[in-house]
């Protein structure tokens, strides 16, 4: 089952609709990493609200997506992990260390907007300081 990927501004939104096999998850990883380049995306949101189970393979794939996207210049946020799923993940010993998460799509978008602004501030801040030193 293919996961639809929407492009919204500078972001890609992959919204998982049903249970995914390992092959589906790997296909999602390939598609997202390819599209980060194609659309010059700055952010990726993976919405896992519909996932009723996250096992070690799913977690590893999501972590890979986040790390690979970051290497391509895009920040990833995983949104919509359900309470029962979070409970089972913790029991399994699965963590999403180094990967950003947010409660839902809205929070995920807000997070990416904040990240984008901070990135812009950093760039502009450096520019101003450089000018001052020179003057």
């Amino acid at each position: 089952m293919e996961v639809p990927i929407l492009k919204q501004g500078l972001y890609l939104i992959a919204s998982i609709q049903s249970a995914l096999t390992d092959a589906d998850l790997s296909a999602l990883r390939e598609a997202l990493i390819e599209r980060v380049g194609k659309y010059r995306a700055r952010g990726v949101i993976v919405d896992v609200t519909a996932l009723d189970v996250m096992d070690s393979f799913a977690v590893r794939t999501l972590r890979d997506i986040a790390h690979m996207a970051r290497l391509r210049g895009a920040e990833t946020v995983i949104v919509g992990i359900q309470p029962e799923v979070a409970f089972a993940m913790v029991q399994l010993g699965l963590t999403l260390k180094g990967v950003s998460t947010a409660l839902d799509l809205e929070e995920g978008l807000a997070f990416l907007d904040r990240q984008g602004r901070e990135r812009l501030d950093r760039v502009q801040g450096r520019g101003t300081r450089g000018g001052t030193t020179r003057g």
Binding site: V53, D55, S56, P83, E84, V85, F87, A88, M89, Q91
Partner: peptide
């Protein structure tokens, strides 16, 4: 439903 998820995750592994 919490236990159902836990059982499903264990089966998956």
């Amino acid at each position: 439903s919490g236990d159902q998820t836990v059982i499903a995750a264990a089966i998956s592994e």
